[in-house]
Amino acid sequence: MEHHSILRVVSKLLIPPMLVYALYVQFHGEYSPGGGFQAGVVFAAAFVLYSLVHGIDALTKVAPPRILHILAGIGVLIFAGTGLVTIALGDAYLGYYALAENPQHAQEWGIVVVELGVGMTVATVMLSIFIAFASHTRKLDNKDW
C-alpha cells in the first residue's frame, strides 16, 4: 500500500494527536469526562488506524500480540493488586484511605492507579481482539482498491 500517499499522510497527521488525546483523557479523567475505559479505546483506535493504512503485519511488529496479552493481564492485576495493597496497609479491599495521610490525596492516588489498570487492559484487549479478527482475513491486493 506504499503508493497510497493520501492515506499515509492523513494517518500520520491523525495518529499522534489521537495518542496524546488518549493520554489526556486517561490522566485528566478526574477533572473532565472520561477515564481509563475511554482512554484505552481511543489509544487502541490510533493503532487500529495505523493497521488499516499500513496493514496488519506492520501493526503486529509495533504491538506484538503476545506482549498485548501480557499487558492486558497486568492491567487487571494492577486493579486487583491495589485492593490487596490497601488491605495490607490496614483498610478494606480498594479502600484507598490507607494510601496516604491526607484522605483526599489517598483517594486521588487510588483512583489514578486503578484507572491506569483499566486503561491498560481496555487498550490492549481492544487491540488484541482487532488483531485476532484482522489477522484471519486475506490480504488486500492492490487490485482490490
Binding site: P33, Q107, E108, I111
Partner: peptide, 9 residues
C-alpha cells in the same frame, strides 16, 4: 471525601 471534580470518576 474524594476531592475530585468529576463525580462520575
Amino acid at each position: 471525601e474524594i476531592g475530585i471534580p468529576n463525580i462520575v470518576a
